Simulated scan of single mutants.
Amino acid sequence: MKIKVTVIVQKEENWYVAKCVENSVASQGKTIEESIENLREALELYFEDMMPENTNLPTFVTTMEVAL
């Protein structure tokens, strides 16, 4: 079985941190690709003993500006 998840990657100091929006599982790596691959492995372990819920719900991602 395969599911699609939404991933955010942010640079934090010398690491890239990849985080799954749907369940907050996160991982890191020295490159974007490494962080995503490490997140894939973390998600496979996360879902190892349970089936994901609501795999067909649409996700809306946007950006916004906030006045400071």
Rank of each mutant, 00 (worst) to 15 (best):
I32C: 08
T62Q: 05
E48H: 09
V66N: 02
D49F: 07
W15R: 06
K4N: 14
K4R: 12
C20K: 04
I8W: 02
V61F: 02
M51F: 06
N56M: 06
L45K: 14
S35C: 11
E53W: 07
E48W: 04
T6Q: 02
V66I: 15
E65Y: 04
L39C: 08
E53H: 08
Y46R: 03
M50S: 13
I36L: 14
E34P: 00
K19R: 15
E12K: 12
T55P: 10
L45S: 13
V7E: 01
M64H: 07
I8F: 09
A26M: 05
S35F: 02
T55Y: 06
M51A: 12
E44D: 14
N56P: 03
E13Q: 09
A42V: 01
M1E: 09
T59E: 08
I32D: 03
E41Y: 11
Q10D: 12
A26F: 05
N54M: 14
A42H: 00
K2N: 14
A42F: 00
V7L: 07
I36D: 03
Q28H: 14
N14P: 00
N14W: 11
E44N: 15
R40C: 04
I3W: 09
A26D: 01
E48P: 00
Y16Q: 01
V25Y: 03
F47D: 03
E22Q: 14
I3A: 11
Q28D: 09
T31A: 14
E34V: 02
T59P: 01
R40E: 10
K4H: 12
D49I: 00
V66F: 09
V5T: 10
I32T: 09
F47S: 05
T6I: 10
E22N: 13
R40Q: 11
